[in-house]
């Protein structure tokens, strides 16, 4: 802090601190806290409430109609009844707009078995995507960092980055076009005479989870490649030559020299890819078009915007956050990297 004040003066330091505090508080802590709080309470609302209010209103209408034809004592008695009914209605309405909240863990514990299956399936799928992305990206990152000439490496990186200037949705739609029933791949197969559009014998790629995997890997490739590339790039080339000179095979060189060095990058890449794919909504939504079952992210969306059940939605999303946190901790443990290595 004093260091900052000395370097930048009080004014700038105040700006830095305010911005950081704003970022942390308004953009990270508050929404999460709101989510957590929502996920922890259940609305104790009478299921019949709406009907009761409707019925009370119709009674009230009848009574008010009767009121005109009554005289004297009868009228005062009925008037009292009307007033008390109005009070009841007001009370019921208050219950509807501001239902009593009860705190508890029910939102977390009463996930239906179907939803739980989807939850586990999504995590497994995201793990598979992460592993596949790692298998695809590690060789690419290594090639760019160590095998390519500097000019070619720059070109390759540029080639990787350029597609990311395009909106993610467009990139996913591109895959849709490639894998669709009458898409690029099936057209090619038809040209080869392997499938035919007439009798609909095309390969239904989009009905397989694999198509979501492909699109997810493609969507998040950079988040895997860059951290690995950055760490591999810092590896001294002599280490590779020393390993070769001592007779190590390519596999052993990677297993014993390159991968241990690239561990922090691999951990970061896996964490990013896992978190992005487990939470991705648009990719499974677009790629499957509802044909091969929901992913958990779609389920959360439904809780919020279709069932209007924010509390359950919040509980579901918070479960996902917890899974991601768990994944980070496991990765840190497995790869024996500290939070500082990851921050690098």
């Amino acid at each position: 802090m004093n260091e900052l004040i000395r370097s930048y003066g009080k004014g700038l330091t105040a700006v830095f601190v305010t911005l950081t505090a704003f970022w942390l508080l308004i953009l990270i802590i508050l929404p999460q806290a709101f989510m957590l709080e929502h996920s922890l309470w259940i609305i104790d609302r009478d299921d019949q409430l709406g009907m009761k209010i409707d019925r009370a209103y119709s009674d009230l209408g009848l009574m008010e109609y009767d009121l005109n034809s009554k005289e004297g004592d009868e009228k005062t008695a009925l008037q009292e009844e009307v007033d008390s009914l109005k009070a009841t209605i007001a009370e019921l309405e208050a219950q509807e707009t501001d239902p009593p909240t009860v705190y508890g863990l029910q939102n977390y514990t009463k996930m239906s078995s179907l939803h739980f299956t989807i939850f586990v399936k999504s995590i497994v799928y995201a793990l598979m995507v992460t592993v596949l992305a790692l298998i695809v990206c590690y060789p690419i990152a290594f090639t760019i960092a160590k095998l390519a000439t500097p000019q070619r490496a720059a070109l390759l990186l540029l080639g990787l980055i350029i597609p990311y200037a395009i909106n993610e949705l467009l990139r996913v739609y591109a895959w849709l076009m490639i894998l669709d029933y009458q898409g690029v791949v099936n057209s090619f197969l038809a040209w080869l005479g392997l499938v035919s559009f007439e009798n609909k014998s095309w390969v239904p790629f989009l009905e397989y989870s694999g198509s979501v995997f492909v699109a997810l890997i493609y969507a998040y490739v950079l988040f895997m490649i860059f951290p690995i590339y950055n760490t591999v790039d810092t590896l001294d080339k002599n280490q590779l030559e020393a390993s070769r000179d001592l007779g190590a095979s390519t596999f052993r060189t990677h297993w014993r020299v390159v991968i241990p060095h690239a561990k922090p990058g691999i951990a970061v890449g896996c964490i990013m890819t896992f978190m992005l794919s487990v939470g991705s909504y648009s990719v499974p939504q677009i790629m499957t078009r509802g044909k091969s079952g929901d992913w958990f992210s779609q389920l959360i969306y439904r809780q919020f915007f279709e069932s209007q059940n924010w509390n359950v939605g919040a509980a579901y999303s918070f479960s996902l956050v917890l899974v991601c946190l768990g994944f980070i901790l496991i990765m840190m443990k497995v790869f024996k990297v500290g939070i500082r290595d990851i921050a690098k």
Partner: peptide, 25 residues
Amino acid sequence: ALIFQNLALFPLMSNWENVAFGLEA
């Protein structure tokens, strides 16, 4: 066998593992 200018020892292995690397291979 080559001894490099910067030695190129493997920093994440212990010294004996470094020495034994060629045998491991």
